[in-house]
Amino acid sequence: MQTPLEITFRDVTPSDEIKALVAEKVRHLETFYDGIISCHVIIQAPHQSQKQGNLFEVTIYVLVPGEELAVRHNQHDVAEHEHLRVALRDAFSAMARKVKRWKDAVAGEVKVHDGPLQGRVVEIHHDEGYGQIIATDHRLVYFHKNSVVDGSFDALEPRDTVELVVQTDESDIGPQASTVRKIGALNYDPKVKKRH
């Protein structure tokens, strides 16, 4: 996460054991999506139930790019939520489902184009035979001189506009172009369209 985990205890005595358990559950959340920005967990015992004693309530706020996901597990006098570990388990299970749904929804908004993917050369090393392109879908794409059509690698300069085809299998260095073709600035369309 980009910011440290925040845990707030309300009417509950803080314990290192519970803090460690929460941290472990947050690490598990990050296995579903590793770009979580922040997480705030609020643990409280708001109800006094004559039958069961304190019933724990767990609220989790997870900040992901462009959205805050929230889960509030109000236990409705469920007897087993008298146990804080069970309340935490249920709240984090609900948050894991939310994170997965959010990630799937974002993946569904894959950028598509009316024509070939385009971009601008941002870095080129003529002596070493490679460069990088910032594509209109915001990916930084590596390319080798052999991928440039018409053998025009040596003519490419930073800020030149290109069309490119990105290999489906990502390499160790990230996205890599299999084909790069220089285009005129007038043909460059930086607008990105979303699939609806």
Score class of each variant (00 low, 15 high):
M1A: 07
Q2T: 14
T3S: 11
T3H: 14
L5S: 12
D11S: 13
D11P: 04
V12W: 02
P14I: 00
S15H: 04
I18R: 01
L21P: 01
A23F: 03
E24N: 07
V26P: 08
R27T: 10
L29N: 04
E30V: 03
T31P: 01
D34V: 07
G35F: 08
G35A: 05
S38T: 13
S38D: 14
C39D: 01
C39L: 04
V41L: 02
I43W: 07
I43R: 09
P46N: 09
P46R: 08
H47M: 14
Q48H: 08
K51Q: 12
Q52W: 15
Q52V: 10
G53S: 04
N54M: 09
N54P: 03
F56R: 12
V58S: 08
T59G: 04
T59Q: 05
T59E: 03
Y61R: 13
Y61A: 11
V64D: 01
P65E: 02
E67T: 11
E68A: 06
E68F: 06
L69N: 06
V71N: 06
R72M: 13
H73E: 11
H76K: 14
D77N: 15
D77Y: 15
V78T: 11
A79R: 13
E80K: 14
H81S: 09
E82Q: 14
E82K: 14
H83L: 10
L84S: 05
D90E: 12
F92W: 02
S93H: 10
M95D: 03
R97K: 12
R97Q: 12
K98I: 00
D104P: 01
A107R: 06
A107Y: 10
E109I: 01
V110I: 05
K111P: 10
K111S: 06
K111E: 14
V112T: 07
H113D: 07
H113A: 07
D114V: 08
L117H: 01
Q118M: 07
R120K: 14
V122H: 00
I124M: 05
Y130P: 00
Y130R: 06
G131A: 05
I133C: 00
I133S: 06
I134N: 08
A135R: 05
T136H: 01
D137T: 00
D137M: 00
K145M: 10
S147K: 05
V149L: 13
S152H: 10
F153W: 11
D154M: 14
L156C: 08
L156A: 11
E157G: 02
D160K: 07
E170S: 02
E170R: 09
D172C: 03
P175Q: 03
A177H: 08
K182E: 04
I183Y: 01
I183D: 05
G184D: 15
G184F: 11
L186A: 14
Y188I: 03
P190E: 02
K191M: 09
V192M: 02
